[in-house]
Design a protein around this nucleic acid. Structure first.
Length: 558
RNA sequence: GCUCCUAUAGUGUAGUCCGGUUAAGCAUUUUGGCUUCUCAAGCCAAAGACUCGGGUUCAAAUCCCGAUGGGAGCACCA
């Protein structure tokens, strides 16, 4: 063994390493460490005296099997195992609030939870967490559904938290009757101040009868802000969330599905605790800003003697320079700095879709990030790499020239060429009508020298006879030379002009990048018009792009 | 300020729970090479990491203590 190690590490080994290896493979030696370590030191020093050639021949002679390369360790596939999980009995859930457009962060929560359900052959619930009528809208509700559908996520149950309003009241009443909750009529600022200073207010001293009366008053007399229901936690707790948090409050706004039917609404903690418990959720995973709520949710369920789910947390996912929060995106839209939530510079699902990112790539990408709690500020190119793999196999290759320069070619033998749509896969061919007038890219035109040859891809070699603002060339019969620039081209007579949109990082540091959207006028082949909207294409030597419309393409990535 | 979470190559992670069979695996990025009528894809190779300081131990990325960096909570938002 020592011999092998020495050989693998440049002819030198160390006794500590060998000792570790022996104890690792043969745990029975672990209580005899003292006895064997002397032997090891001896063996190691004798081996280190040998030259590496001697070591090698020694191995060949006595232990030839050691020379076969070591097998690589296999990496764990998929997500880490769940605690307390039983095959077939796992229920997970994704509870978005319909208060905005879905983004990559939603995708992470939805994908992780749905993967877990799949992994254990369990069920997956979509629950619209709609307990704040002031900010929720049908528009967002619909957008979330569309986004999830696009991602290819399937649900066994779809519901809304507000379906269970009567149950919340029932449980709220129960908590009041148990003395585990009380009505607080203090001012908002005082509550906040007391929580900060860990002081109880006198409302918390009121008896159950008074609380019951006040609960009724919340339904009719009290105005929003006059009274809230608070959980009797522990005002001295280190975890600030436990300092008598709000369970119910009065909101008079119109709910997007229930209208004005209710005016007392449960808070997040109350709603999540009850819902997860009655929905049978076994594992509740959410992003880690909720970590402190774990204790509270358990406490609420304990007080009600209800079943508790296993909770877990993962880091938030954001991209460098791509804001996720409505607080930042909304003003950008209002100022016209981005067009809408589907702007390809945005990490919204709509934005990613429009940019040409495939749902499978998002799924793979998110799975690759794992369940870490360390902050993830992923670079976009990691997502791009996954996407490229999905997109490459069935992206039609088309010619496109930017900053077009004219090229006139003499002696062309044909008036049309047939070009395959994909270099490897059979995706058919297209025929391009040509005459002597071409466009080539400005960058290429500049680097070409007079008197040299170039190859127009799919067409043949051209000897350049004149360089300048416009180029001239002559067709070369047996264009066998391959060690020359090979460039894409477009026929002038059929050239189709489109706008190429290149999205870039939206923010540099925390400053809006004024050059985050580059627009180019480019020419492509008429075949572009026959492609479906939304199709992914690769403009040869330029990159992958998504057809946005007949006159516009969006650059996806290299 | 108080409380909690977190720290592995340029980047993202595996390994950490239960210390040794791995002088740290994978992906991405970068750089070379092969292949090619694309600067794509594919194939091969190279480069590159355990935040710092103590402690425990024969042995620490792994356990303990401390420091430092990053994030979150301290809402009648979720």
């Amino acid at each position: 063994m020592a011999l092998q190690n020495a050989f693998e590490h440049g002819g030198e080994t160390r006794d500590k390493i060998i000792l570790g290896k022996i104890l690792g493979t043969n745990p029975e030696f672990r209580n005899k460490v003292k006895e064997i370590s002397g032997d090891i030191t001896e063996i190691v020093s004798s081996i280190n005296k040998l030259s590496s050639e001697e070591q090698e021949s020694e191995i060949k002679e006595n232990f030839p099997e050691l020379l076969t390369p070591k097998e690589k360790i296999e990496e764990r596939k998929g997500l880490p195992e769940l605690k307390n999980a039983e095959q077939g009995k796992v229920i997970t859930r994704f509870p978005p609030e319909p208060n905005g457009y879905p983004h990559i962060g939603h995708a992470k929560a939805a994908i992780i939870n749905s993967e877990y359900a799949k992994m254990y052959g369990g069920k997956f619930i979509l629950r619209m967490d709609d307990t704040n009528p002031e900010v929720e809208r049908m528009e967002y509700h619909a957008a979330i559904k569309v986004g999830l559908e696009w991602l290819g996520i399937e649900f066994d149950i779809v519901k809304s938290t507000s379906d269970d309003m009567e149950l919340f009241y029932e449980k709220g009443m129960e908590l009041i009757n148990l003395g585990k909750a009380y009505i607080c009529t203090c001012k908002r600022e005082d509550i906040s101040k007391n929580r900060r200073e860990r002081k109880a207010c006198k409302c918390s001293m009121e008896d159950i009868e008074k609380n019951k009366k006040n609960w009724k008053k919340m339904n009719d007399k009290f105005k929003p802000g006059d009274a809230v229901v608070r959980f009797r936690g522990d005002m001295k707790a280190d975890n600030a969330v436990m300092r008598d948090p709000v369970l119910f409050r009065i909101i008079e706004g119109k709910h997007y599905t229930l209208g004005k039917k209710y005016r007392i609404w449960p808070s997040y903690d109350m709603a999540v605790a009850i819902e997860d418990s009655i929905d049978g959720v076994t594992h509740a995973y959410r992003s880690k800003e909720f970590e402190l709520r774990e204790e509270l949710i358990d406490a609420i369920l304990d007080a009600l003697k209800m079943r508790k789910p296993t909770q877990g947390f993962f880091s938030r996912l954001e991209f460098k320079g791509m804001p996720i929060s409505k607080r930042i995106i909304k003003p950008l839209i209002e100022e016209g700095k981005v067009t809408w939530y589907d702007d390809p510079r945005l990490p919204t699902l709509e934005g990613l879709r429009r940019r040409g990112i495939k749902p499978e790539a998002i799924r793979k990408f998110i799975m690759s990030l794992g369940l870490t709690k360390a902050n993830t500020l992923a670079p976009f190119d990691a997502l791009e790499a996954f996407n490229r793999k999905f997109v490459d196999a069935d992206s039609i290759r088309l010619f496109m020239v930017s900053n077009a320069k004219k090229l006139t070619v003499k002696n062309l033998p044909t008036s049309s060429v047939e070009i395959p749509n994909h270099p490897i896969n059979d995706m058919g061919k297209r025929t391009i009508e040509i005459d002597k007038n071409f466009y080539i890219s400005g960058d290429d035109a500049q680097s070409i020298k007079e008197g040299t040859q170039i190859r127009l891809l799919g067409l043949g070699n051209i000897a350049i006879t004149k360089q300048g603002i416009e180029l001239e060339g002559e067709f070369v019969e047996n264009g066998e030379k391959t060690d020359i620039p090979k460039i894409q081209w477009v026929s002038q007579k059929t050239a189709h002009k489109i706008k190429m949109i290149i999205p870039k990082t939206l923010f540099i540091g925390d400053k809006f990048n004024e050059d985050s959207l580059e627009e180019l006028d480019v020419f492509t082949e008429p075949y572009y018009l026959q492609l479906k909207e939304g199709e992914e294409i690769q403009f040869v030597r330029f990159g992958y792009c998504r057809k946005d419309s007949q006159n516009q393409a969006i650059f996806t990535h290299k």
